[in-house]
Amino acid sequence: MKKQDFKLFPGTYLQGKWNGHKYKVIQKLGAGACGTVYLCQTFQGEKVALKVGNDSSRMMLEVNMLKKFSKVQGVKLGPAFVDVDDWKATSLKVFPFYVMEYIEGVPLSNFLRGKGKEWIGICTIQLLTDLEHLHKAGFVFGDLKTDNLLMSNSQVRWIDVGGVTAIGRAIKEYTEFYDRGYWGFGSRKAEPSYDLFAVTMIMLEMVHPNKFEKGAHPRRTLAAKLASSNDLKPYHSLIAGVWKGKFQSASEMKQALSYIVMKRAKGTPVSRKQMKAQKHSSEWGELLALSAVAGVFWGFSIFSFWI
């Protein structure tokens, strides 16, 4: 909430007060609720992402989460943790910062642009796989949204684990569009189903890139948005099921989704129907042409008969 009163320019060096490590700023990567993230270079020339902010407590909570979730059961979930320190900008001003693995990739929305609709299912399965591990470790992601996701080597990666909350507690950070409480679909308690709702909103966002507001009847708005998309048709009942609270874990939802995706890969009924329709129309065309020719001949013969 407080305005940051500094700007880091490329080439600036930043040194930690406690650990003494030095980082060279390369460029700004983005700004979040409580800080700005920069692409930096370590003394050894390694590329890292460095977040610097104002709220030292909040930053420290993020570090704690990062340390916990860089690796869960051998699976890489968030970015790996590198360093945490304070930067003495001037003799009076000290800013807390932390350093993590730099994940190179493109935002999910950019990645999906121009891609086939089959990616909707695939990205969602990847997301659910990571959530599965996180939930098993006793946590929910909380603030799950496209802004917090990157596509790196065709793989979804989380870049901000600040909203990760222990199961059973209150969700500490959320974004209205992805929040089931906002849509009237349940509480803000950290439960696996809270994340699953956010996953369905990410799916909706994939086909409606310009997000929408809830309006007077939130549930009706959602139902209408779901129904209006052809690309989401195969997932219609799955998404509606999540909203009804049918799935209690990421594994259940993933299983249901995999079933749909695999079926679609083999599936032909839709295309066969289309082919049939095409055949029909071409037959009609032939018939029309034939009758026109016949008509001309008939007219011609009548004409010659008159003569």
Partner: peptide
Amino acid sequence: SLSLNART
């Protein structure tokens, strides 16, 4: 109230 009642 929705947010706060999610707390313990």
